[in-house]
Simulated assay, not measured.
Amino acid sequence: MIPATLWTLLKESGIELIVAPADEFEASFGLNLNVLPTSPNNCIMIDGFPKTKKVMEESGVSVQVFKGDALCMACEGGPTCLTNPILRG
């Protein structure tokens, strides 16, 4: 769910883009894409999207999951909405 121009720019820059399974995207109203990168090749996502998790792990990403039933709802919030930026020295 990014503009085609950005997709092209990322690909031309050598950045690997991972495509999430369409069925999990549709069933979750996009919540399976709400993934919080914590460092290169590490991220946090809501548990319950095994296909999306598998695709990322097969691409070398270490995925930590959490139960988001009480905190996250499709199109309302996910891991990225549960964070607060910090200044690192």
Results as ranks from 00 to 15, higher is better:
residue 1 M to I: 13
residue 1 M to V: 14
residue 1 M to R: 11
residue 2 I to P: 08
residue 5 T to I: 10
residue 5 T to V: 14
residue 7 W to Y: 13
residue 7 W to D: 11
residue 7 W to L: 10
residue 7 W to F: 11
residue 7 W to E: 09
residue 7 W to I: 11
residue 8 T to A: 13
residue 8 T to C: 10
residue 9 L to G: 01
residue 10 L to V: 12
residue 11 K to I: 07
residue 12 E to W: 06
residue 12 E to P: 06
residue 12 E to S: 15
residue 13 S to N: 13
residue 14 G to T: 07
residue 14 G to R: 12
residue 15 I to L: 13
residue 16 E to C: 15
residue 19 V to I: 15
residue 19 V to R: 14
residue 22 A to L: 15
residue 27 A to Y: 01
residue 27 A to D: 01
residue 27 A to V: 06
residue 28 S to E: 01
residue 29 F to C: 10
residue 29 F to P: 01
residue 31 L to G: 02
residue 32 N to P: 06
residue 33 L to I: 05
residue 34 N to R: 03
residue 34 N to D: 15
residue 35 V to I: 15
residue 36 L to I: 11
residue 36 L to E: 10
residue 40 P to F: 08
residue 41 N to A: 06
residue 41 N to G: 00
residue 41 N to M: 14
residue 41 N to D: 11
residue 42 N to I: 11
residue 43 C to W: 10
residue 45 M to P: 05
residue 46 I to Q: 00
residue 47 D to F: 10
residue 47 D to W: 14
residue 48 G to E: 02
residue 50 P to I: 11
residue 52 T to A: 09
residue 52 T to M: 07
residue 53 K to T: 04
residue 54 K to L: 00
residue 56 M to I: 07
residue 58 E to G: 10
residue 59 S to F: 08
residue 59 S to D: 04
residue 60 G to D: 11
residue 60 G to T: 08
residue 61 V to S: 12
residue 62 S to A: 11
residue 63 V to D: 01
residue 63 V to Y: 04
residue 66 F to G: 00
residue 66 F to I: 07
residue 67 K to V: 09
residue 69 D to P: 02
residue 70 A to G: 13
residue 70 A to P: 06
residue 73 M to E: 09
residue 73 M to P: 01
residue 74 A to L: 03
residue 77 G to P: 05
residue 78 G to P: 03
residue 78 G to I: 09
residue 78 G to L: 03
residue 79 P to N: 01
residue 80 T to C: 06
residue 80 T to E: 03
residue 81 C to Y: 07
residue 82 L to M: 12
residue 82 L to R: 05
residue 84 N to A: 13
residue 85 P to E: 08
residue 89 G to E: 03
residue 89 G to L: 12
